[in-house]
Amino acid sequence: MRTRFPRVMGAVAALAAVALTAAACGSSEPRDVLADAAAGHLTIGTKYDQPGLGLREPDRTMTGFDVAVAKYVANYLGVPESGITWRESPSGQRENLIRNGEVDFIAGTYSITDSRKRVVDFAGPYFIAGQSLLVRADDDSITGAESLEDGKKLCSVSGSTPAQEIKRSYPGVQLQEFDSYSSCVEALYRGKVDALTTDDIILAGYAAQYPGEFKLVGEPFTTELYGIGLPKGDTDARMKINDAIEDMVATGAWQRALEESIGGSGYELPPSPTVYRY
Rank of each mutant, 00 (worst) to 15 (best):
A137F: 06
E246K: 11
L154A: 06
R190G: 00
W254I: 15
L134V: 14
D236Y: 10
D236M: 14
K192Q: 11
S169N: 14
E149Q: 14
E146R: 13
V249A: 06
C184L: 01
V185F: 10
A204C: 04
F178P: 00
E224M: 12
D200I: 06
P211D: 10
M248E: 13
Q164N: 15
F178N: 06
K215P: 07
Q131L: 05
A253I: 03
I166F: 06
S141K: 12
E186A: 12
D200T: 08
D150I: 11
S141V: 11
I228W: 11
P211V: 10
V193L: 00
V249R: 13
A195N: 09
P220K: 09
E213I: 13
E224K: 01
A204V: 07
A195E: 04
A187E: 00
R256N: 09
E146W: 04
D234M: 03
Q174R: 15
L134P: 02
K215T: 02
V135L: 05
W254L: 13
E165F: 07
T161M: 11
A204Q: 02
I166Q: 03
A207E: 04
F214N: 11
Q176K: 10
A145S: 04
S132V: 07
L134W: 13
Y226F: 14
E186Q: 04
L203Y: 08
C184A: 01
T223M: 05
D199W: 02
E177A: 02
K215H: 03
A163M: 11
L203G: 02
K192E: 10
K232F: 13
R238I: 12
G218T: 03
L188Y: 09
V249L: 09
E213A: 12
F221T: 08
A145T: 09
E219R: 12
R238M: 11
G218D: 05
S169R: 15
L133V: 01
S132A: 12
Y189V: 00
S147D: 13
T223Q: 10
K240R: 14
A204E: 06
S156T: 15
A137E: 04
D194C: 03
G191V: 03
M248Q: 15
G212E: 06
T222H: 11
